[in-house]
Design a binder for these strands. Structure first.
Lengths: 217, 217
DNA sequence: AACTCATATGTAAATACTTATATATAAATA
DNA sequence: TATTTATATATAAGTATTTACATATGAGTT
């Protein structure tokens, strides 16, 4: 039921085609949503039969015709109600964290490789996002205006950015921890090469305290 | 295709019933995964026909019988391959961030209310998680042993914790920003009560820099 | 005494989402 | 020149997920 609100929310800002909506999803909104055209088009149809949106056909030369959707008063009411309704904690599906959770099944070197690889992928994403922010920031300064709309989308953008920054930092610190605890993986290690528990404990405490105070007694 | 890996991963640690797996999902694994029993049972059946797991019936007195699943060599191979396969950035669906994105449709007071409410919900979740960590930590110190398995699940746990901490901090700082920019919402405000652009710009810059350096020129 | 919760396994139906296919043209790239 | 990409809409088929239903018992709560 959230896809309809993603669509209505966008149409409360501008008129748009299904294709436009998809581009918006893939661009800025990818921080918190995604969807395929094959899901967007039927949803727009449903919204039209429910009279939350209306459409008009716009013929184009050389390109396929456009079906431009506009929001109705009913649609505005629906999206406004939803935005003000009690928020829920989204149920996460993070397949990489799941891989990490089961990484005791592979070698330390593989673990470190996976973490480094993922860190790189996230870094690339962060770099792209930073470019977007800088462009947006430039145009805001040129226009010399600040609006609630800009404010709220900036809040979302900051959340997206800091999420990337923090994931990268987590990768880094986890690589360090695993590197320091390497000998735990080796069952054939001689006793003096095995990590003593006290040392592991200290490393872990440091690792946790870098992110959250555990205030334990 | 990830549910099967969640199940196989768990069965690579211990034998379990579908019911046990569901509890594990709802408990520790909720940081990165969730699923319903009505999806877990059919998936276990599929895994059995593919010979990645085997099952045996265990009758119980007073309670329904148990169907305990064990992983096979084929299952171990499958999960090991998957854990070592190239990780992908999960596509996020965060309906709260979407609500925030469209919050220019409601009043400032409602915006602040929504943010405060969500912060509270997240805080409650963090408090629960902290309790779990403290218990786990106590038992680790009692057992005086550290293993790759414990290490990797600790890494996931830390990620979960810091995610909560950061979301709470984001709520706090966003509330402050919105509070400071309140006058933007009021179209009837007299000119001198409207937030000047320069002031808004400074507030925004501070807001972004608290999380990420934008290194702009 | 009636209701809810935890244990335990399942099926059925409905919804949501992904992947593949179909059509049509212009522009850009290999 | 052939392929890919972008524009634009749409359907079909398959997979994944959620919600509802069905059954059974013991323990705890209202």
């Amino acid at each position: 039921m959230t896809l309809r609100h993603a669509i209505l929310g966008l149409l409360s800002k501008w008129d748009a085609t299904g294709y436009d909506i998809k581009k918006e999803f893939d661009d800025f909104m990818s921080i918190f949503w995604h969807s395929h055209l094959s899901q967007i088009y039927p949803e727009l149809n449903k919204l039209e039969t429910e009279e939350l949106v209306t459409s008009r056909l716009i013929p184009q030369e050389g390109k396929p015709h456009k079906k431009v959707y506009s929001i109705t008063d009913g649609g505005i009411e629906e999206i406004t109600n939803w935005v003000g309704s009690p928020p829920e904690i989204p149920k996460i599906k993070d397949s990489f964290l799941m891989q990490v959770f089961f990484m005791d099944n592979i070698s330390v070197d593989q673990v470190i490789f996976q973490l480094k690889y993922y860190q790189g992928v996230r870094q690339k994403r962060l770099d792209e996002m930073k470019l977007t922010v800088q462009e947006a920031w430039k145009s805001i300064k040129e226009r010399q205006t600040m609006t609630p709309r800009l404010l709220m989308s900036s809040a979302v953008l900051r959340r997206g950015l800091e999420q990337e920054v923090q994931y990268i930092k987590w990768c880094e610190e986890t690589i360090q921890l695993v590197e320091a605890c390497k000998s735990l993986w080796d069952p054939d290690a001689s006793l003096d090469s095995v990590l003593p528990f006290e040392e592991a404990k200290d490393l872990m405490e440091e690792y946790f305290n870098a992110a959250v105070g555990l205030e334990e007694d």
